[in-house]
Amino acid sequence: MSDLVMTLLSVGVFFNFAGCIGLIRFPDIYNRLQASTKCVTLGTILILLAIVIHFGWNSISIKAIFCAVFILLTAPAAAHAISRGSHRAGFPLWEGSIMDRYRDDFPQKPRE
């Protein structure tokens, strides 16, 4: 396993780790989605890139590239669906938030 592959794997795992820490440390669901979506997307793509470099140009690499493209397309869509669903279900933003223009336009019902 070459140095480049090891570096890519380490950086990828580090970003995934940062995403998980953010999931615990951030105060509300919207901030947690920020951490999990961004860090986990890049972290996983770096790990897949390490696979491509390690195995060279064959069927495993093609599958890794397809995975990377689909993660790039679906991770933001999932984050959008979860955040929109939570807001409509009545989860408020963290108390320290500056403003909520979405609540101004679509009033939230309090949760029962």
């Binding site: 961004k38 890049l42 609540r103």
Partner: peptide
């Protein structure tokens, strides 16, 4: 994408969690 990851990583590991969130 890379800039955004470094930005979020910085906020995650900073002791005081420097965020000013909101929906614009």
């Amino acid at each position: 994408v890379i800039k955004s990851n470094l930005d979020v990583t910085y906020r995650v590991f900073h002791p005081e969690i420097p965020i000013r969130p909101g929906i614009v």
